[in-house]
Amino acid sequence: MREVSYFAPTEVGEAVKLLAQHGEKAAVLAGGTDLVAQLNYYEIKPSALVYLGGLDLDYVREEGGKLVIGAGTTIAHLLTDDLIAQKFSVLAEAAATHGSPAIRTKATIGGNLGTASPAGDMIPALMVMDADLVLASSKGQRTVPIQEFFTGPGETVRTAEELILEIHVPLLKGKAVFKKLGRRKAQVCSIVSTAVRLEMDGGVCKDARIVLGSMAPTPLRCSKAEAMLKGKAVDAALVAECAAQAVAESTPIDDQRATAWYRAKAGTALVARALAEVAGI
């Protein structure tokens, strides 16, 4: 029988020490909505489980002009948090599409980043706000811009000894929305998703972020499409052109949820709808 040890540290220092000791062989357990399914189906065989539930990482605070979100914050919490509703509503929008109630009660935002799926629904919202991720290890902490965090499907710059501790979200101006298309409205991995943020001055776009989910090996920031908008008056024609450009920057694939062809068509529609909504046209 396989021997597995279980640890439920109550302090971050203790947790990172355990990770340093066990390295690759340890699995960090947060809500378990990804990890435990992998355990049940023998996809991973860790020799130690380090459970983060005792670390009190479920919090949302405003500090120094930023929102600070603990990695252990559950999706259910994001949905009902007043600060999130007021200052980061695009994240609440994304949270509302995450799984179903019994998934949201346990799934955490840190777990969404840890899984690093191109379909991770919290990620586009964090990307349009230029969030920073704080990683902790027994050697100290480092901050990684979310833009640099993902390196491939399920792959990140995080080392096995590091913990995602918290997420820092600058309170950038402008309006942001999230759109998701799946095979049904609940409990689905997206076929395509998008978050966009526009900062408008009159009818003119001052700053733009466009992120696509499920359209590339990682959630994708579409910088050429963003550049098309800056300094321009946003009208329906520009929205259509920009949506097409965003999708042109992506590399969608065929899989069991949809074909690349469909993803491109639906993605264009979704980005255009999101842009029109934030631009108020």
Binding site: L29, V36, A37, N40, Y41, S100, K106
Partner: peptide
């Protein structure tokens, strides 16, 4: 399903619905 998808294993943990198939018992 043992995979979180179907909901047949749903129980309440401190009053909140959770998937017991995705909940490590020790937690």
């Amino acid at each position: 399903c043992d995979d979180g998808d179907c909901g047949t294993c749903t129980v309440l943990l401190d009053g909140e619905p959770v998937r017991s198939c995705l909940t490590i018992a020790l937690t």
